[in-house]
Each structure stands twice: as structure tokens, then as C-alpha cells.
């Protein structure tokens, strides 16, 4: 009896967060799932929601914006995730082992991660201005007569956004890697040194393997995050020039909030969710082959 009562009290304590979860998370997810099989324009009212089966998904196969946006998103992920991972490890090792004022540099590298995306985007737009930006001025000074047009170039716009994302996101990786580095037993490095291993060999055979659980964690959350890129695209290019930076979340936003095709946008969201889930599952499966648990 007492056990039962305690259970109820426990549930009562859980109720506020449970209500929040149901109203703000579970209901929107389930409603979005339902809408992905429907046609609805948002302002017509609930009674105008029309069930159309898998038509939204069929339409996607023939939609060149969907194709471009998935391909651009994939390219973006392939640029940003490895970039952030490599910088995250290399800078963390340098800061941890070879630099004074470690705390100062750690804070400095972390700053872009917590900086406002709008402010960062404006600064990057100024920096990468084709004729007056400091980046192209430097490139011209070192002999590159015709530097890229960056955000105004179809070939470089996505790269520019990716560079910005690498810059803003690496700080987080650096901080996490630095914490992980402190957990690697120093005896391993000492033993390697006694055995005659060079600094690079220690890095290659001790640091990288022992950081692999952290690297795996970072890779996973970064892949999930970068698939959902939206802010920099909305602020800097609005998907252009042409369709050069049209990424999937921006395309979902356009369909939902410019064309009022809520059902179609929900279907795209579901596809994105499935892709991210599959990629994550594959990663989980593959991690056994390269993540070193100690």
C-alpha cells in the first residue's frame, strides 16, 4: 500500500516535466508525422487537413530543390564534421601539451561557439567581401590575382558557410578533447618515450586511439547538428546564389513558411529524420571497428 502511494507521489513529481515533454515534444513530433501524409496549408483550419497517403514522398523524388538541398547538405556535412574533428584534436593537443596560458587560449577558442550566429554571420560577410574584405586582400597580397567571390560565387558560397561553421564549432570540440586528454594516463606516454617513440608516434598510437571514444561522441553529435544547418544559410545567402547553398532545413522552411505546404515540409522533415537516424545507426555499428575502449 505504502509502495503504491510512494509510486503515485513519484509520478506526481514527474508530472510537470511529463506534461512539458508531451505538449512540447511528443505531440509536435506525432502531429508532424501525421501531417507528412497529408496536404494542409496551415491557415485553412484543422478540418481542411486532407490525407493523401505517400504522395508527398513521391513528389519529393521529382523535386529538384529536394535533390539539390540533400546533396548540398551532404557536401556541407562532409566539409564541416571532419574539419571540426581534426581542428578539435590538433588544437586540443597543442594547447594541452605545448602552450602556456592554457585557460586563456581555451576560452578564446571557445568564444565563437557561444557567439551569436547573427553577429558571427555579419562579421564573416564583411571578412569575405570579394573586393574589400580582409581575406581577399591577404590573398591578393600573397599573389592570388583573382581570389574567390566567396558568398557571391556559386562554387564558393557553401564552402564559405562551411568554413564559418568549422570556426564556430571547433571550440566545443577543443574543450571536450582537452578534458579527454587529461584522462589519458601519463604512464603510457612515459613508457612510449622510454621505448623510443617520437612525439608524432605517441600522438598516432596513444593519443588518437585513446581519444577515439570522445571523437566518436563528437562525430555523432556534430553529424546530427550539421545535417540541421539553417541559421547561417538564412542569414548569409538564403539558399543562393542560385541553389548553391540550399540545404534541407532551409528547403523545409521555404515549403512550410513561404509556400504554406505544411504536409510536404513535414514529409521532408521525416525523411531528414530517417537519414540522420540511419547515419547514426551506421556510426554506432561501425564504431566497434575503430573506437578503442579502455
Amino acid at each position: 500500500m505504502l509502495q503504491k502511494r510512494e509510486n503515485w507521489i513519484g509520478y506526481a513529481f514527474l508530472l510537470p516535466s511529463l506534461i512539458g515533454f508531451i505538449v512540447l515534444k511528443l505531440y509536435p513530433v506525432l502531429f508532424s508525422l501525421f501531417l507528412s501524409f497529408c496536404e494542409w496549408d496551415l491557415i485553412s483550419g484543422w478540418d481542411k487537413i486532407k490525407f493523401i497517403g505517400i504522395q508527398n514522398f513521391i513528389n519529393m523524388l521529382d523535386d529538384r530543390y529536394v535533390v539539390s538541398s540533400f546533396s548540398n547538405t551532404l557536401r556541407y556535412v562532409l566539409m564541416v564534421v571532419p574539419g571540426q574533428l581534426v581542428i578539435g584534436i590538433v588544437v586540443a593537443v597543442i594547447l594541452e601539451k605545448c602552450v602556456f596560458f592554457k585557460r586563456y587560449f581555451r576560452t578564446t577558442f571557445f568564444m565563437p561557439y557561444i557567439a551569436n550566429t547573427v553577429a558571427v554571420s555579419v562579421v564573416w560577410m564583411a571578412m569575405f567581401h570579394p573586393s574589400m574584405g580582409p581575406v581577399n586582400s591577404i590573398l591578393k597580397a600573397i599573389g592570388i590575382a583573382e581570389p574567390p567571390g566567396w558568398l557571391s560565387s556559386r562554387d564558393w558560397a557553401l564552402v564559405t558557410i562551411a568554413l564559418m561553421s568549422i570556426w564556430t564549432g571547433s571550440g566545443y570540440n577543443i574543450v571536450v578533447n582537452m578534458a579527454a586528454l587529461q584522462g589519458i594516463p601519463s604512464e603510457l606516454y612515459e613508457a612510449a618515450k622510454i621505448d623510443g617513440a617520437s612525439g608524432f608516434q605517441s600522438f598516432r598510437h596513444i593519443t588518437i586511439p585513446l581519444l577515439s571514444p570522445t571523437t566518436f561522441f563528437l562525430m555523432l553529435i556534430k553529424i546530427i547538428g550539421t545535417f540541421q544547418v539553417f541559421g547561417p544559410v538564412k542569414l548569409m545567402t538564403k539558399g543562393g546564389p542560385g541553389r548553391a547553398t540550399m540545404v534541407i532545413v532551409y528547403e523545409i522552411y521555404r515549403e512550410a513558411f513561404q509556400y504554406y505546404k505544411i504536409g510536404y515540409a513535414s514529409a521532408q522533415t521525416l525523411v531528414l529524420f530517417v537519414i540522420i537516424m540511419l547515419v547514426t545507426l551506421v556510426q554506432m555499428k561501425l564504431q566497434k571497428k575503430w573506437v578503442y575502449q579502455y
Binding site: M125, S152, M236, G240
Partner: peptide, 9 residues
């Protein structure tokens, strides 16, 4: 230039 608009907003 249109590219100015693109790069500066």
C-alpha cells in the same frame, strides 16, 4: 554590382 549585394547583404 549584384555581387556586392550578395556578399554584403
Amino acid at each position: 554590382p549584384y555581387t556586392e549585394y550578395l556578399s554584403t547583404g
